[in-house]
Design a binder for these strands. Structure first.
Length: 275
DNA sequence: AGTTCCCTGAGG
DNA sequence: CCTCAGGGAACT
């Protein structure tokens, strides 16, 4: 599911709701989530009793800052999402955090059909030094256009692959790379080194624009993504090319797909230019 | 730079 | 039955 706008939505919700709460217990029926952190038993020992003092996003990761300098980094992968005391059980719950604040109690559920999610637990220093976090590129919402142009000038190859590379920029995935390339009228197989500078500038502005628009709409829900309350995001209904194969573009062209690596790119075969 | 795999479910 | 799915690590 989740790309930058979805993870941003969840992280903001978590921050608003959970700061000041304490982890009382942790349950999981899928200990594989914790293989990279020394296993579930160790993770339980580390987490139980800690307070939540902050929640942030780094790329597509949610970072829980815990008392004592510890952090929990969560990658939702394809289908993971958090639910805080949802009105209904939405299923596929493989992890539960029991929380308390004074005499109040709450349960934070992790729902994840495909069980691809990953959790990393440890001291802040330890976790941030791990390659999956340390090697993340800058965030598209904080990088300047100048930095973006410098970075992309150092990259050659298919622009779609470069946008998806988390070491280039962190947070962009299949939906928003397709949408940004569509808005900038660049065909996804274009080589970065052949795209004119003014078009790269446009690409960056369109990328930032579409990410911000989706954050306002609380993300895109195709199937699994939900916010903390279990509500879907609205961007998917307003998407331009993603998952619109065969539909007509406003220019009269038809939306086609092409495989780029292991991903499907969607583009208008008429108005997007191949460089 | 291009597969393959991790998992499960939906849709053709 | 088969292919595909918003991600990314680990392999050639």
């Amino acid at each position: 599911m989740p790309e930058l706008p979805e993870v941003e939505t969840i992280a903001n919700d978590l921050k608003r709701r959970l700061i000041g709460w304490k982890i009382k217990n942790v349950w999981s029926d899928w200990p594989k989530y914790f293989v990279a952190s020394g296993g579930f038993d160790r993770v339980r020992r580390v987490l139980i009793g800690r307070g939540i003092i902050g929640v942030n996003r780094r790329g597509k990761n949610i970072i829980f800052n815990l008392s004592g300098g510890y952090v929990l980094a969560v990658h939702l992968k394809m289908t993971g999402h958090f639910l805080l005391d949802p009105p209904a059980n939405l299923g596929y719950i493989h992890l539960i955090f029991e929380l308390k604040k004074g005499s109040k109690k709450a349960k934070l559920y992790f729902s994840d059909v495909r069980k691809f999610g990953r959790m990393i637990v440890g001291t802040s220093k330890e976790v941030m030094a791990r390659p999956e976090l340390k090697n993340l590129g800058p965030d598209p919402l904080t990088i300047t256009i100048k930095e973006f142009l410098t970075r992309i000038a150092g990259r050659r190859g298919r622009v779609k692959s470069v946008l998806l590379d988390q070491e280039f920029l962190s947070g962009v995935g299949n939906i928003y790379s397709d949408e940004a390339l569509y808005l900038a009228k660049i065909q996804p197989l274009s080589r970065t080194e052949k795209i004119p500078p003014q078009k790269l500038k446009l690409l960056f502005n369109k990328l930032v624009g579409v990410l911000k628009k989706s954050i306002k709409l609380r993300g895109a829900t195709r199937r699994d993504y939900r916010d903390l309350a279990g509500r879907p995001g609205d961007y998917f209904n307003q998407r331009l090319v993603y998952a619109r194969k065969g539909e007509k573009c406003s220019c009269g062209g038809i939306v086609k797909t092409v495989k780029v690596g292991s991903r499907t790119a969607h583009y208008c075969s008429k108005c997007q230019v191949l460089y």
